[in-house]
């Protein structure tokens, strides 16, 4: 049973990580909680459904368009809403509130366009998984785990090696200094949304295939992804991935011993304990609680 539990934890962790990494990238650069990231994921998943199942586009093409769509959606949210608020020097709590309003807006829009019933993309047929070291896993689940790990590596290099990545870190560390050396913070914020939302697009595709689509899927995904991101260290993308896996393990091993109704309680209790005793998360830098 242990191998299966391990695999279940890895799958759950990978899904949380896909949500958490994009969210964390945006948080680390822009320094506010973009809860509407969940809306980006949900809307993109429905967009994939629309292209692939309704329009009958090829799967490869649908995937590419979905990722572009997600990027565009995130970029637009920043451009149309958040940027205006920053110009008016709105505080973080206003931005948080705004992201809630955006979430409500997009979830209602999905409901209006696609209806309330469950949608299946139906690209992967349901079949028994294959045995792998004493556990059962499906090919799609392997892809999910692999993508989340590859994404972690790619993001690491993106932040360390590319010009935009470096600029993002500079803005994240100290916006004023970054602007003095000629980095446009506004530009970098846009980039953070484009890259972070592209990851949301990838998450949307994989989660959509694994879990089916519902208008409210964004909120549910976001609550767990956000928990993983904070446990790992809010503002650190590798931390977010690590925290998500830790959350997956804690939940699945936790309910092996406790009644399964406590699954969410375990997640939130860990979140609370981390915030109390190690609020910078696993990988966060101890920047004096600010």
């Amino acid at each position: 049973m242990f191998p299966q539990l391990l695999v279940n934890s890895l799958i759950a962790g990978a899904i949380y990580a896909l949500v958490a990494s994009g969210f964390s990238l945006i948080y680390s650069t822009c320094k506010f909680v973009h809860f509407a990231h969940g809306a980006t994921i949900a809307f993109s998943a429905y967009f994939l459904y629309f292209l692939f199942s309704d329009l009958g586009l090829s799967f490869g093409l649908s995937v590419i368009f979905t990722i572009i769509f997600a990027s565009l959606l995130g970029w637009l949210m920043d451009k149309v809403v958040y940027k205006k608020l920053r110009q008016r020097k709105a505080s973080k709590v206003i931005l948080l509130m705004t992201s809630f309003a955006l979430l409500i807006f997009f979830e209602s829009l999905i409901l209006m366009l696609f209806g309330a019933d469950v949608k299946t993309i139906g690209y992967v047929k349901i079949a028994r998984g294959f045995d792998f070291l004493g556990a059962i896993i499906t090919p799609l689940q392997i892809v999910i785990i692999a993508v989340s790990l590859v994404l972690l590596v790619l993001l690491y290099f993106f932040m360390k090696r590319t010009k935009i990545g470096k600029a993002m870190r500079a803005v994240a560390d100290n916006k004023e200094v970054a602007e003095v050396v000629g980095i446009s913070a506004e530009n970098i914020y846009s980039w953070a949304f484009i890259v972070g939302s592209a990851i949301a697009g990838i998450a949307a595709i994989l989660v959509g295939l694994e879990q089916n689509l519902e208008p409210m899927m964004g909120t549910n995904l976001m609550i767990k992804g956000f928990t993983g991101a904070i446990i790992g260290g809010i503002g650190s993308v590798p931390g977010a991935v690590l925290g998500s896996f830790l959350l997956g393990f804690a939940e699945n091993f936790g309910i092996w011993f406790l009644p399964s109704g406590y699954k969410d309680a375990i997640a939130f209790a860990i979140l609370f304990i981390f915030l109390l005793f190690r609020h910078q998360g696993i990988l966060g830098i101890g920047r004096n609680s600010k």
């Binding site: 299966q4 879990q211 309910i255 092996w256």
Partner: peptide, 18 residues
């Protein structure tokens, strides 16, 4: 055995295993 899952949950693998 009695196992449960929260509304909105998309993963019951561990419950099924138990």
């Amino acid at each position: 055995a009695i196992e449960s899952y929260a509304q909105g949950t998309k993963d019951v693998k561990t419950q099924l295993m138990k």
